[in-house]
Amino acid sequence: MILSTSVINPNKKRFKKTAISYTLITIFFFAFSRIYESFSFGETSVHMHYLFAVPLVGGIILVILLKALPQFSRISFNLWNSAVAIITAGTLFRGIVNLSGRSTTLDAPYWYVGIGFVVLALLSISINPIRLKKNFRTTEV
């Protein structure tokens, strides 16, 4: 059976889709934060100004992990995406509150839950290869 050259490796496809998605999200948040700040009547917010950095850094780390770990599981991928989304939402919330001229601690749960998801994602990355080796050994015997 001859394989067509149009068949793409699923890992390459996920890598490419992830890189494009995070690039577009970063561009969107960069433009959104600049436009939102321009209508803030002189108020500034570090959180709003650097909102784009959260998906940028999260995407770079994810792309590196996808390239370095070919056995990167779907649950690790989803946990990482969730962590980036939660931290981005927390940064956006804090930026909007700061631009309104107020301060609050209502954004604290975003940070705690986001960090929790990062920890879960990193644990799932480290546990998955151990589980795969254990399953391979039991099927060998």
Rank of each mutant, 00 (worst) to 15 (best):
M1V: 11
M1E: 14
M1Y: 10
N11Y: 06
K12C: 08
T18F: 03
I20P: 02
I20D: 05
Y22F: 15
T23Q: 03
T23C: 07
I25R: 01
F28A: 14
R34K: 13
E37S: 15
F39H: 10
F39V: 07
F41A: 08
G42L: 01
G42E: 03
T44L: 07
S45Y: 10
V46C: 03
L51T: 06
A53C: 09
L56M: 14
V63R: 02
L66P: 00
K67Q: 10
A68S: 13
A68D: 10
L69G: 01
P70I: 04
Q71G: 08
F72I: 10
S73P: 03
R74C: 06
N78K: 06
W80R: 01
S82R: 04
I87W: 04
A89E: 05
G90M: 02
L92G: 02
F93L: 07
I96E: 05
V97F: 07
N98T: 12
N98S: 15
L99Y: 04
R102G: 09
R102H: 13
L106A: 14
L106N: 11
L106T: 08
D107A: 08
D107K: 00
G114Y: 00
F117M: 11
F117G: 01
L120S: 04
S124A: 08
I125F: 05
S126R: 07
S126M: 13
I127W: 14
I127H: 08
I127L: 15
L132V: 11
T138R: 13
T139A: 09
E140R: 06
